[in-house]
Amino acid sequence: MDVKDIINPENFVYGKSKVLTDTVMHYCPGCSHGVVHKLLAEVIEEMDIQDKTIGVSPVGCAVFAYKYIDIDWQQAAHGRAPALATATKRLYPDKYVVAYQGDGDLASIGTAEIIHACNRGENIVVIFINNAIYGMTGGQMAPTTLIDMKTATTPYGRSVELNGHPLKITELIAQLEGTCFVTRQAVHTPAGARRTKRAIRKAFENSAQKKGTSLIEVVSTCNSNWKMSPVQANEWMVENMFPFYPLGDLKDR
C-alpha cells in the first residue's frame, strides 16, 4: 500500500493533543520539558477537564508553560508554585490544580513551599522536572546536581566538601503524611513517556478523590547546559542519573 493511501484521516492513530496550542515551544531541541507538556495536555484532553484545570508555572525554563497548554494558568514567583497552587485550590476546590516546577525552583529556593504544601496534603498535582541543573539561567549547579557533574558554577565537578550532597527531595516528600502518590519517571523512551502519562492521570484522579498531594518527579535532561546532543543527553541520563535517582513509585496509597 502506498504512503499516500495510508495518510488518510480514517487511519489516524496519534497526533498533537488538542489541548496544546499552536505556539512553537521556546525549548531547546530535544528538551524533556516539551515531552512532559505534551503528556500533561493529553491527560487533560482524555479526562475532558480542559476548563476545569488551572496550572501554576514556575520560574525556570518552563515559565512560559501557559503559552503552550491551553488551560487557565497562574505564574508563581520563584519556588512559590506550591503556595500559589494551595491558594488556587482552596479558592476553587472543584478545579484540578497542577504546579509545574524545575529542580532549582522546587528543591532550592522553594524548598519550604513544597515541603509544607505536601505536608499539609493539599489536593494538588505537582510535576517536578529534575534535570540536575538550573537550565534557564545558563547551567549553574542545582541541589540535585550529581557528584562530579560539571556545571557553570562547579567547573571541576560538584564535590561533597565544597557543595554538599545531591538532594533526593522526592524521597523526603514521600515521608510526609500529606502525600498520597509520589513517583519518579522519565520520558526518554515511548514506554517511559507512557508510564509518566499514566502517573499524571493517577495524580489528577487522586486530587479529585481528595487523597492528598501527588508528586511526579520526571528525571530529565538539559542537553544545552549539559553540553551534549539531545540523544547523548538521554544516554547520559540513563547511565548517570538513574543509579542515583531510581525510577518507580516511592509511595502509592
Binding site: D5, I6, N8, V13, Y14, K16, V24, H33, G34
Partner: peptide, 22 residues
Amino acid sequence: TGCSNCAVVCPDSVITVYRVKI
C-alpha cells in the same frame, strides 16, 4: 509500522501517525 513511538517521544509534537492493517 505506525507504532507511534517516534511521535510519543517528540518534544515538539510535530509527528502525526497513520496506520492500516494489512
